[in-house]
Design a protein around this nucleic acid. Structure first.
Lengths: 343, 343
DNA sequence: TTGCGGGATTTGATCGATCTAATAAGGTAG
DNA sequence: CTACCTTATTAGATCGATCAAATCCCGCAA
């Protein structure tokens, strides 16, 4: 049955102290005499007392809740990344006494409408946005209204990545791909190609830059770089076509790095698994089929995002903008004969 | 800046009425005289007033929030289903003025600990569980403590599926697979095999039963059914091995239905795309690669779950237990030469 | 003994809404 | 014209916590 929950008053009575002392035991234990504290804690345990969240929120004017948008078009194979991020975020938030609340939106304007609903209703007191773009009205609105937020993804297009008003966490795709090149070379590969997204997406450009940098370091010239890469939209069919093109212009490839697992899957199918492939995002598909991929380490991203949220309130006064760049993990998988596609 | 939010008192003053009248306009508009109501509504709009969620929750003792567990092992390709369900649920909940809050747990005992935290703190007032099993301690705890909940998935193993205390929604896998057989036959297929999970999982058994029923209806005998089906754990490699076995004992197959997209992918790879395959869950992988699959219609599931939650409170008094069985959608895709795997 | 400092604890007000009960206004029947 | 009912509105209490300020208690110096 939905029994009456014990209140702080019940605990106070049971421990023969005032309500405020019970409150202190919960919120600033160090100012309560050890003996008193023990008695109160015993009473709390015995009654199974837990503070009423709404009452606390009302009084402290803090919701201790962060809002995360659940994307409608999680579509594509890489949707799983956001999923894992969300799980990590929820887990870390729980440990900090925070709750994670979801909302959805159809577009930026609708999302701002949701901001208003959540902010005006004092439902949440911070936001985590999963992707932002140049002149994003959402971040502008949040900044203008003094709402704390962190983005997963750099504020692409903003001149100053250290803008003190913009807190972000991102994965260092450049470093990840560079590492992947190194790992492939350890396995004996010499000519390593890159299948990327059309230029213009910040994320994709970074990944390609990592590959290019690694190759340049070993003395490969610019014209050669052009020969070893092609672009493709993020679809399996498109990736297969692009792979054909790439192999036509560079038949000497030993391995291919792709900007996403979707593209990697296309390569894998087109080459019938004959060429080692490294994808990006380490999605369940990469795991299921068994090809290498670069893992975003969403757990670290989530932890960093929450740390930054702690800062938002305090560091506001012109301090250095907070941001973190997380190095991803290259997961190498033996894609050899065991799981090679059938001829 | 974080300006002071207007309160119900501010609105009352602006409209020259009492706080209670403003409250009535919001909660039972019909009892307020039209003229007064208009004046209050104008004041609300002008001030941009929105009720403070925590204050309302404190007073009404309703959190208007439902908790959903975010699974750690969303792993596997089919994780996307829960993801889509969650999105649909959030969207529908918003429309009803409800919020969706996430929590995580490592096992059933830990999950019950979370129940306690969320219930005792009056953080949420209903739960949605994604999967239950026989003698599930979680549902027992929730029932015992009078907490409203709905499960996505039948209470497998419970004798009485109409148990008035257990509200559930599920997808009719049996009907879905039966439909898939019909659709495959429309395309000319005659011998249709089934690659299922090992017997014992309620969901998997239902799916196989749908296939078996469809075949029996067209006069196929039991021994023939045995020849046309094999079992496999839910992995691509396992599915490939099982496919080899299936083809060995039934070389005359025209098409294969699999209990999941993961299994379907295994079939597809092993047969190099030569055989039409129908998976289950219509995951992004099925869409990306382009093979047929059975869609769970999570949007309908989410809508039904919320409807049932409305009932939980009222129908409690020995009425008929609420549940809904949603018919899935067979999504046929031309997997033909265009996307067939390369030989 | 008195006064004072400071840690420990208590008291009363408050956050912003809704609930309950009381009041005011308007209409009808006796 | 009064009594009585209905509808519309208001006043005050309340939900369960924390904040701000007051009080208590103890030891120690004057």
């Amino acid at each position: 049955m939905a029994r009456r929950l014990p209140t702080i008053g019940d605990v106070a009575r049971a421990a023969s102290v005032s309500r405020q002392t019970v409150s202190n035991v919960l919120n600033s234990p160090e100012i309560v005499r050890a003996q008193t504290r023990a008695r109160v804690e015993a009473a709390i345990a015995e009654l199974g007392y837990r503070p009423h969240a709404a009452a606390r929120r009302l009084r402290t004017r803090r919701a201790s809740t962060i809002a995360v948008r659940l994307d409608p078009f999680v579509g594509g194979i890489s949707g799983a990344v956001l999923d894992r991020f969300l799980h990590a975020l929820t887990e870390r938030a729980e440990a900090k006494g925070l709750s994670v609340m979801l909302y959805t939106a159809t577009d930026a304007a609708d999302e701002i409408r949701q901001f208003r609903r959540l902010v005006d209703g004092a439902v949440v007191d911070a936001f985590v946005l999963a992707a932002t773009y140049y002149g994003d009205p959402r971040t502008e609105w949040l900044i203008e209204h003094g709402q704390p937020f962190v983005t997963f993804g750099r504020p692409w297009g903003i001149a100053d990545l250290s803008d003190p008003l913009h807190f972000w966490v991102d994965v260092d795709g450049r470093a990840g791909v560079r590492d992947a090149v190194a790992r492939l070379r350890e396995t004996g590969a010499q000519q390593i190609g890159f299948l990327g997204w059309p230029a213009g997406s910040g994320t994709g450009d970074e990944r390609r830059a990592g590959w290019a940098a690694a190759l340049r370091e070993s003395g490969i010239g610019d014209s050669e770089l052009v020969r070893l890469t092609v672009e493709s939209e993020d679809g399996v069919a498109e990736a297969r076509a692009a792979t054909r093109k790439l192999l036509a212009q560079a038949s000497d490839l030993d391995a291919i790095i792709a900007a996403s697992d979707t593209l990697a899957l296309g390569v894998l199918i087109e080459t019938a698994g004959a060429l080692p492939v490294v994808g990006f995002d380490n999605t369940p598909v990469a795991e299921a089929i068994g090809f290498s991929s670069i893992d975003q380490r969403v757990d670290e991203v989530a932890a960093a995002a929450l740390e930054l949220l702690d800062l938002v309130g305090h560091a506001e006064a012109g301090g250095p903008g907070g941001h973190r760049l997380i190095a991803p993990d290259v997961i190498m998988r033996a894609q050899g004969p065991a799981l090679g596609l059938v001829g």
